[in-house]
Design a binder for these strands. Structure first.
Length: 205
DNA sequence: AACTCCTCCAACCGCAATTCG
DNA sequence: CCGAATTGCGGTTGGAGGAGT
């Protein structure tokens, strides 16, 4: 139809963002607000596709981003939320003010995953690993060494049978109005779920 | 001191969901 | 109501920096 396609424009930059690009993007969004990513690059004088601009803003330039190390509480919260929601990073991020889905995803893959592995838990299921099925002993050993703090082995869990129970994190109110993924009672209304999350997010800010 | 391997983070890619003409 | 365009999400990759040999 009359609409032009997303980001197949001839000259769009890729790769790392320059300071100038960042400045342009920030300045534009400050002046005009978020949204309309499709037309933003043109309007802001950026040779990027809208997708790229959105990602850069969400993950890096937004002023309300926390950035920096995750606290022990955030750590536990992520584990618990992942236990409930699975790889729904955007939902998890919705419960962690100042954190982005990408950041949490990275943090999960680099730190938490191995933390769980080191303590003998399957990061996917949050259940004890079948030690006989160890795929790579060397890797495992590596993981065990690298980021295994003393309290790790007991960190976010008590036993396997609590894997589905709603957490009672010390001091952290999850306030989840979400269903665990293992509840197929109704066909997925995905985006609404996200909204419910974000509205709940305000509560723990 | 130089080289190699490993880790981490930012960004890209493709797909699914939602919105709009 | 249908189909195309746009947005958002999750998985994956590439490169920079650091640690170890």
């Amino acid at each position: 139809m009359g609409r032009s396609p997303c980001c197949e424009k001839a000259h769009t930059n890729k790769g790392a963002w320059t300071k100038e690009e960042d400045q342009r993007l920030v300045a534009y969004i400050k002046a005009h607000g978020e949204g309309c990513w499709r037309s933003l690059p043109n309007a802001a004088g950026l040779l990027r596709c809208g997708k790229s601009c959105r990602l850069r803003w969400i993950n890096y330039l937004r002023p309300d981003l926390k950035r920096g190390n995750f606290t022990e509480e955030e750590d536990k919260l992520i584990i618990k939320l992942h236990q409930l929601l699975g790889n729904k990073w955007s939902l998890i991020a919705g419960r962690l003010p100042g954190r982005t889905d990408n950041e949490i995803k990275n943090y999960w893959n680099t730190h938490i995953k191995r933390k769980l592995l080191a303590s003998g838990l399957d990061p996917k299921t949050h259940r004890p690993l079948n030690t006989t099925a160890t795929p790579s002993a060397r890797h495992q050993e590596h993981l065990a060494h690298s980021s295994c703090s003393p309290e790790t082995s007991g960190a976010g869990h008590s036993s396997d049978d609590d894997s589905a129970s709603v957490p009672h994190l010390g001091g952290i109110d999850l306030n989840l109005s979400l269903r665990p993924p293992s509840q197929p009672s109704s066909p997925p209304p995905p985006r609404q779920e996200a909204e419910a999350t974000s509205s709940a997010t305000a509560a723990d800010a």
